[in-house]
Design a protein around this nucleic acid. Structure first.
Lengths: 242, 242
DNA sequence: TCGATGCGGATTGTTGACAATCTGCACGTG
DNA sequence: CACGTGCAGATTGTCAACAATCCGCATCGA
């Protein structure tokens, strides 16, 4: 019984979760274009599983807002327009500022620990930047912000933010204008860390606002379908109040 | 072709959604106690449907955080402790304050319209209060706050808030101490409306903070399982960042 | 007596087949 | 030629059976 500690828990994650993760990555990468139909049977045969798990995975992504299900018609990749991008970034700012408020309000030791965690992430960002790996840069960027929110210690905010982070990644893929000048990315995050370390909440709010503001003109010209908005999927996460 | 306009779109909502709604209500009502197991086959036979839709409905509620799925074991009603209640109310304050910031920042006409919508809801609250129908009072209460968030016009915030509202309702059922003195409920909401109407953001923030603050001592003695916290369900909504 | 081990019951996970529903096109009719 | 109608194809929605997995308990050995 010596080597047991070297064994890592086998992650026999449910098939549906694996499929959902894979599809999510494909959507983020842009392998599925917005508006594309995602066929249950097709995906199932491609992955050599039956339609059951695929169906479950698709519904999962529908609830996340990545896919849109039209009853008896099919599920389609949700189309994002400039308004969606603005919504996502505005919502992110709401949650991140709240997290920042909590984190900066703590004592210096805890702020220091949080700053260290974030610094480790930014170091990886720097590496991705040096390598010119922009997709990875984007992912680590969102990982940074997710970690910031996680530091607030409110799992409900985590849950809400996770969805937004995924949507933001998609926005980055389809709206190149939404991402700031790449050379500013790493320094910008280091600034956020310093504000966490020093515990200056107002400054952090300002920096986050700047960090997450999406200028309309930056988006202009990238919007695929203009003003057209879809309603929320019928089978949404929570029933509307009666 | 005269009477067609009187016809309302038949809402043949998917079976799974209907089941999910029904289960959600049962959980809110307390018909399922926290920790109880919810058996797929049992629910299916009770509702005269196969396990498929039931399974889908359960997974839906797991993603909402109402149920906890233990792989190959079963799904159980999520147990809430005082910490969860605090989290839910803190997260609600975050989102509602953000919504308040947006709404109060608009011009007087739009604020007035929002206030009118909210007033209609509070009037129904008053009716529930007069009737002594506390469960209904709680639901309309959350409906009020959901409407406030909806007025901000950010569907991402709506989505996040919907889950929190459901969890808050469950908290109200299982932690009677979380709800303020009932006679204060209606006046408290009318105060919020007035602050929306007058557009005084700081005051609205203060009022919301007061409205949503959960005193530890109010909760004390209602917590079923003390400090024991469960991890998030493995099959959670969004994969952890790599 | 205490701990490991194998077995049985229960529950979820998965599958393939069948039914219901919707859309788009071709056809017939005024 | 315009409009309504019926059909065909495709896709999701639902179902019941099978397989895999896990927990709890009885058993066995030191």
């Amino acid at each position: 019984m010596r080597g047991v500690e070297a064994l890592s828990a086998i992650n026999s994650r449910p098939t549906a979760v694996v499929i959902a993760d894979q599809l999510r990555e494909s959507i983020i990468d842009g392998a599925f274009a917005p508006g594309d139909q995602v066929n249950e049977a097709l995906v199932a045969s491609r992955l050599n599983v039956s339609r059951g798990p695929v169906r479950e995975a698709l519904h999962r992504l529908v609830q996340e807002g990545l896919l849109l299900a039209r009853p008896n018609r099919g599920v389609f990749v949700q189309e994002l327009d400039a308004r969606d991008v603005a919504e996502v970034f505005a919502a992110r700012e709401v949650i991140e500022c709240a997290a920042g408020e909590i984190v900066t309000g703590r004592d210096a030791d805890r702020r220091e620990a949080a700053a260290d965690r974030l610094t480790a992430i930014v170091d990886r960002m720097q590496a991705a930047f040096d390598a010119g790996d922009w997709p990875r840069l984007g992912r680590i960027d969102l990982e940074f912000h997710t970690a910031l929110v996680a530091d607030a210690g409110n799992s409900r905010l985590d849950r809400a933010y996770a969805t937004l982070a995924t949507e933001a990644l998609i926005c980055l893929t389809h709206f190149p204008g939404a991402y700031p000048e790449r050379s500013n990315v790493v320094p910008g995050h280091r600034e956020l860390i310093e504000l966490v370390r020093s515990g200056t909440m107002e400054e952090l709010h300002r920096a986050l606002h700047e960090h997450l503001s999406v200028d309309d003109h930056r988006l202009h010209g990238h919007d695929a379908d203009g003003d057209l908005r879809h309603g929320r999927p019928e089978g949404d996460a929570v029933a509307s109040q009666p």
